[in-house]
Design a protein around this nucleic acid. Sequence first.
DNA 1: GAGCACTGC
Length: 669
Amino acid sequence: MAQDREGPPAKRFKAAPPGTQPQSAAPPAHVQRRSLPISGARGPLLARLRRLDTAILIGETGSGKTTQLPQYLYEAGIGHPGVIAVTQPRRVAAVTLAARVAEEKRTELGKLVGYTVRFDDCSCAETRLRFLTDGMLLREAIGDPLLHKYSVAILDEAHERTIHTDVLFGVVKAAQKKRKERGLRPLKVIVMSATMDVDMFSQYFNGAPVIYLEGRQHPIDIFYTKERQSDYLQAALVSIFQIHQEAPACQDILVFLTGQEEIEAMTKTCRDVAQHLPEGCPRMTVLPLYASLPHSQQLRAFKPTPEGGRKVILSTNIAETSITIAGIKFVVDTGMVKAKKYSPETGLEVLAVQQVSKAQAWQRTGRAGRQESGICYRLYTEEDFEKFEEMTTPEIQRCNLASVVLQLLALKIPNVLTFDFMSKPSPDAIQAAIDQLDLLGAVTQKEGQLVLTPLGKKMAAFPLDPKFSKAILLSPQFHCAEEILTIVSLLSVDSVLHNPPAQRDEVQAARKKFISSEGDHLTLLNVYRAYKNVNGHKGWCRENFINGRNMKLMAEVRAQLRDICVKLSMPLESCRGDTAGVRRCLAHSLFMNAAELRPDGSYGTVGSQQLVAIHPSSVLFQCKPACVVYTGLLRTSRCYMRDLCPVDAEWLLEAAPEYFRRRLRSAKS
DNA sequence: GAGCACTGC
């Protein structure tokens, strides 16, 4: 048995998972408003908030805080005549919340109530309640650090600690202070969160009071295993079938696993086992769920359970916050997650399976009690659970900070090393980011202070990693702006190349015609040109194993980047066949990611002489160019360079003479 | 000769 069901008494608790997910929780509209838990507290809540500059609002799932509070504030005239901003970590949430609130106010979406997300602005001068993504408000702040148009900033889902929310904390705190000092209209800041991190939020915002809101979450029973499980997959399998044979039909199971491959394998195993069950067992429908799964297949997880059957959903952490499935009675938590780590010394990103935090485990557990009471099986011992980290490390402590530092400098933060972060990244990580920006020519010292150069200011206008912004800004010098725009856009979305392992030979045959001996970037450029030639025809995409969805997204990104170029009055030319210009431009912007062939046939990075290899997915896999630049490193079984472009060592010397003089092997000889 | 969790501007 994977877990102990008769042993020590189950812990019964009232789960308070974060994250109201409006897109599928969707209670009926305005008729429901008055019966939400928050409505009983309206009067006292408004009285308190009216007096406060800053408040931390803790609300359980189902409290109605996200939809109701902005309306209450507006109806009470708090913040009038400014705009009330409500930020969300995800686009869908911003859009669906705005739609719902507009419906409750019985107004047209985009007028009084609106939303603003990337590629989609549904708001106007009349808009008073504005839902936006946290990243969008941050971008606005670059143009207007004091956020003049807003009178209230509500930062929702703050416990998720996205990199954007974390930077916004500092931005709104500073804006509030400065507006006060200058006698401007005050900025009210309301931080909304689930139960974790309460003290930290309050402390950060100068001891701001914490207001608790009742929620409406059903009780969930939690079971731990008696003994530590050596194989969480085996334990999960046993648990699934144990539940399946004991629980009534129509009670669905959600299982948290770590990744696509694991989920696909487990899906197959479960389906096989399910075929050999004794008679009288409910029919089992096993459904995988992960982000890269085609949308149509994701939707299957939402279909109601067939009469007399049972749905078993095998999911990544996408089901923790982004996707909510109704009717889950059982959650099986393996306690594992695949997550990214970053080490500033090597610039290496590592994607590794690791233990979840306590907060994450509670989040998973909460997915069981959304419509009625639920049960959660934790495939680890209670003792081990106690040893889990309290919180997941905030994203800002796990990332390359080059973009963040560039944004902070664009916000005219006087000293990025002492910026008021709620959770400070390591000084090494900040310094590494400054060094990168320095090499790109984005920053300079002025009167002992780090400031942006004119180039740096332009770079900050692009929603991109600084090295890509630099590529775009340099491209006119090489007469290839159109091509670089395409390449950078392709690199900033998920891969447009679809690689189903089962059809490997067909994929290779179809891809042949796009391959350029000048590397992966130019191969991608060929794909885009061919795609444009057939006007993005769907059948063509299918035949050529091109991901049409990502291609469309890429086109949107490209249009946005092109707009920014036009606003910066950049001359946009195409080099047509002269692809050397494109490679030179890439050499001048990716020079920090350069590697040289060594006499023994291996590759070493020019920066730190680290041993690296060409990723087998690269078109240059079988080739041995003397000198390459790459988009990034990926650490798996070895350290791989991804997206390669062969370059001349002289180009690198041209790009950053000081940096390369001592480093480049070919320059020494 | 490999394989990538999830967001967002």
